[in-house]
């Protein structure tokens, strides 16, 4: 039978999956995501939901299957029999502070990185971040690249990051890998992206504005 047909037949049936969301026993249909299951059952205060297609990183959940505990995104996880789901509170305020406009010299950047993220070089290789990532990013390797000053490669490792910050939660050294990854991506663009076509057009527009300003000031005289 075709996948779409069998799926739609399933949906037409009575709720057939029993699970727990935020401590409440609820029933859901096979094929519902955990977000849909929570709404379907009227679980109160499920407001950490955004895009519902796996790119905003808001709907962080802790999942328990027997003794096995994992984390994930509720909009990307389907209801299953017996699973216990807890919607996680929003991430706490970041502990690492920098403003990219304060960086004046790319030659200093590794010193700045070590000031801002001193924990990054203390990774104990527990793989907690790797198993927490719902996008399958090789987080630990990305952090190692950053600690070695290889920002372009590190940033590339974090390309699919949706800023759910589940790796931050998982890190026993408080490295904040998601923010390390974004730091790497940002300094790479900030210091090294200098596209000739854009630079040429910006200068053209500047000269046009200048000549318009000159004409206008002549007219005033």
């Amino acid at each position: 039978m075709s996948a779409i047909l069998s799926k739609e037949n399933e949906n037409a049936q009575q709720p057939d999956v029993a699970l727990t969301i935020n401590g409440l026993a609820v029933n859901a249909h096979t094929g519902m995501t955990l977000v849909e299951a929570a709404w379907h059952a009227g679980v109160p205060r499920v407001t950490s939901v955004g895009c519902m297609e796996g790119v905003c990183g808001s709907c962080r959940v802790m999942l328990r299957r027997g003794k096995d505990v994992t984390v994930g995104l509720a909009c990307q996880t389907f209801a299953e029999e017996g699973i216990e789901v807890v919607f996680m509170p929003p991430a706490s305020a970041p502990r690492h502070h920098y403003e990219i406009g304060d960086f004046k010299d790319a030659w200093d950047i590794h010193a700045r990185f070590q000031d801002i993220f001193p924990e990054a070089s203390r990774c104990r290789h527990c793989h907690g971040c790797d198993s927490a990532c719902p996008k399958g990013i090789t987080v630990e390797n990305g952090v190692a690249l950053a600690a070695a000053g290889r920002y372009r490669d590190a940033g590339e490792a974090f390309f699919e990051c949706v800023m759910c910050e589940l790796c931050d939660v998982a890190c026993p050294e408080l490295i904040a890998p998601a923010h390390v990854g974004l730091f790497c991506r940002r300094v790479t663009a900030h210091f090294h992206l200098r596209p000739p076509n854009l630079i040429y057009r910006l200068e053209e527009l500047r000269q046009e504005r200048q000549s318009v300003a000159l004409i206008e000031s002549d007219e005033e005289k």
């Binding site: 990219i100 790479t188 200098r194 596209p195 000739p196």
Partner: peptide
């Protein structure tokens, strides 16, 4: 300047 990356051609455009 904020740190956003864009796709580039081989010559950097």
């Amino acid at each position: 300047r904020q740190g956003m990356q864009f796709e580039q051609t081989p010559s950097g455009d």
